[in-house]
Simulated scan of single mutants.
Amino acid sequence: MALSLAVSPCPNDTFVFHALIHGLVPGAPGIDLTFADVDVTNTAAERGQFDLVKVSYAALPWLLDSYDLLPCGGALGRGCGPLVLTRGQRADLTGATVAVPGDRTTAYLLMRLWSAGHPPARIEVVPFHQIMPGVAAGRYDAGLVIHEARFTYQRYGLTALADLGEWWEADTGLPIPLGAILAKKGAVDPAEATGWIRGSLRHGWLDPAASQEFILANAQEMEPAVVKQHIELYVNEFTLDLGEDGLAAADALLGRAAAAGLTPAVPAFAGAKG
């Protein structure tokens, strides 16, 4: 029986999961694939909709009763944080209307922590591809963007008010935990799923040309040079194994969020499966 898998169509996910999706990982089950933005998967996972699912670390407090965090396959690293963009010069977000890609995304949680002393006046959840054009057109005072937008925002005439990854790393010394892979309890053995995903990732690293057609077909009109930058930034040693630094980063993010009253408290991740 096929396992249901939900990931984004972004190049890092299609690179990591290409071999698993296409039956190239020995011993792995068939995959019933769904592509969806992370704001959609955060909500779907709360309903228990998928066996394996990519979600925001910020959404974990609402999901860990039903899912196990896997130590691989996600998006976590250095120099890859969300950006707060504006059309003109601003000192902070006081009184601003800000477009964000989801209200349970790691990006939004980081922005709330960063802007605690100068919060925006209004938040609008906007499909990711509409954020930069909306800020450029003046529909929003600022926009919160992720992934490939850090390579392209200048084309819209926008300015980076803050790099939340730089802020996080300077404040904590830790990598930034963006996207996590979860396995549904009772449906997927976490250790087996970890093996399948690591096998898929290693296949991608050994034969990167094999996944290129699949990646480009789902890259939402992203040009090949940006696709390459995207994969190089977001597929890294933490994708293979969160390790002590990765788990510490997740603990720090959600510990700070709980202390600020932004999310429910969760146990430390030192016992993550796999």
Rank of each mutant, 00 (worst) to 15 (best):
L64M: 14
V126W: 02
A162L: 02
C72H: 09
N42V: 06
A45I: 10
T94W: 03
T106V: 03
Y67Q: 07
K54C: 15
R112T: 07
T41K: 05
E46P: 01
Q130F: 12
R104I: 03
R78M: 04
Q154F: 00
G73S: 04
L70T: 05
V40T: 12
W62V: 11
Y67I: 08
G48L: 07
C80P: 00
V98S: 10
P101S: 07
D163G: 06
R47S: 14
R78Y: 11
P71G: 13
L52A: 04
L69S: 00
S56C: 10
A99L: 04
T41A: 03
L63Y: 12
A58C: 09
T106C: 13
L164F: 11
L52H: 03
K54Y: 10
D141W: 06
T152A: 09
L144A: 04
D163N: 12
V100F: 01
M132S: 09
R87S: 14
V38P: 00
A44I: 12
V38Y: 02
I123Y: 11
R112M: 11
P71V: 03
G143D: 08
P61G: 13
T152W: 00
I131E: 05
I146L: 10
D37Y: 14
Y153V: 06
A121I: 00
G95H: 01
V100T: 14
Q154R: 15
D103E: 12
R78Q: 13
L93H: 06
R122D: 14
R47V: 05
E166D: 10
Y67L: 10
G143R: 05
G88F: 06
S115Q: 11
M111P: 08
Y57A: 15
R139W: 10
V55L: 09
I131Y: 05
E124G: 06
F35D: 06
W114F: 14
M132E: 15
M111F: 12
D92G: 09
